[in-house]
Design a protein around this nucleic acid. Structure first.
Lengths: 108, 108
DNA sequence: TCTATTTGGTTGCATTTTGAAACTTAATTG
DNA sequence: CAATTAAGTTTCAAAATGCAACCAAATAGA
């Protein structure tokens, strides 16, 4: 999404700001896993199947935007835990809506 | 999103099915424009700023998934109108949620 | 203490998707 | 029947994605 005409500049358009962060293939799956209890990098990586470099980018982006927080949990090896911030948790109703709409409208 | 482990196969995961269709940079902006009254190819193209070839792909995809319907409206030149199906209209609460969440949580 | 192990990443490169601009096609108006 | 209009297509460059191999920090165990 390179070009943005006046009506869709992130400064003035909530939908534009939304898709800039959550409008991709993986973020919602990552967030859903978090609600299910995932917290370690490897949790997300294994359960979603996302490539490691892409997961690194997404967690960084979501963390920068305050949806996740990254915490050091001293254990063997590098040891970080990603957990949903209050802002992240506030996505739960939206996630439920997505799941509900999908179940009703996207037949497999 | 190439690889999909068992727990995220579209057949069994509503979130996966959702992002496969609505998890991209443009679809929500297109849908929002439709709720605002856009209907012609050029309406969507001008108001969002999306490249024509990408818009072609998105409208095709959204139409194939029953969110838009394409109708011939005989006027000068090629003359199609894209309008939201019932399924498309059923996205309105979700769109409102997205806008609301974005306004409250994504500061510009 | 020294080494092996366990994460959580990076890097390099191939493949896919996106974007911009120019071009094409179909229909219609004058 | 030519000019116009709208909806695409095509071409090619640039960016994002995916995979596999590699690296690095920290602890556990000997």
């Amino acid at each position: 999404m390179k070009k943005q005409p006046p009506s869709y500049k992130p400064e003035t358009c909530p939908v534009s700001r939304f898709v800039a962060i959550l409008g991709d293939d993986w973020s919602w799956l990552i967030i859903r896993e978090a609600f299910r209890g995932a917290s370690k990098f490897s949790d997300f990586q294994k359960s979603t199947g996302i490539a490691k470099n892409i997961l690194t980018d997404r967690m960084k982006k979501l963390t920068e935007h305050g949806i996740f927080e990254r915490r050091d949990v001293g254990a063997t090896g590098p040891r970080f835990e990603y957990f949903l911030s209050e802002k992240g948790k506030s996505l739960e109703p939206l996630l439920r809506n997505i799941i509900g709409w999908s179940r009703e409208n996207l037949n497999h």
